[in-house]
């Protein structure tokens, strides 16, 4: 198989997409956001419970989409639980660089390694928006709006 395809659909990604973590609504969400990719009709909803200390106590998602968008949402929720909002934004910044094939400076090595499973998408420009949908939706949820990526 072509290497870039192997990289894109590596086992970690397929595992996340088949068995998404933190899937389903959150009863006590303080923030929610809905994202929509008009290109393919995929939708994602992000639930966040943010404490007074600015820390994400709980996060979940639901939605339907391709393996890339589902894996990205699952991985994101896995990584953001327990982080501060400021840390979430730093991670998102690094992630957006990474999926475009750019240097994800500013992330610590652990985070970079975990996010790196999504880096293969940079070889597929038409699919980058699949990977970023959940992150943009998370950000808009924190900002209290509705995300629309195109």
């Amino acid at each position: 198989m072509d290497d870039s395809l192997r990289e894109l659909y590596q086992e970690v990604i397929l595992d996340h997409s088949r068995h998404p973590r933190h899937f389903g609504p959150l009863d006590h969400a303080s923030h929610t956001g809905e994202g929509h990719n008009p290109l393919c009709g995929d939708r994602v909803k992000i639930y966040l419970s943010v404490g007074d200390d600015g820390r994400i106590k709980d996060i979940s998602f639901e939605g339907r989409g391709c393996a890339i968008s589902q894996a990205s949402a699952s991985l994101m929720t896995d990584m953001l639980a327990g982080r501060t909002v400021a840390e979430a934004e730093t991670l998102m910044g690094g992630f957006l660089h990474l999926v475009k094939g750019e240097d994800a400076g500013g992330l610590d090595a652990d985070d970079r390694d975990r996010l790196n499973v999504m880096a293969g998408v940079s070889a597929f420009p038409m699919r980058v928006k699949c990977a970023t949908l959940a992150w943009h939706t998370m950000k808009s949820a924190l900002e209290g709006g509705v995300a629309k990526t195109e």
Partner: peptide, 20 residues
């Protein structure tokens, strides 16, 4: 998902439409 399928087909030189 149609987009995953279309991405793999594309790498085989097969151009199809995926989406709504």
């Amino acid at each position: 998902h149609a987009h995953d399928l279309a991405t793999i087909l594309d790498r085989e030189g097969v151009a199809v439409r995926a989406g709504h």
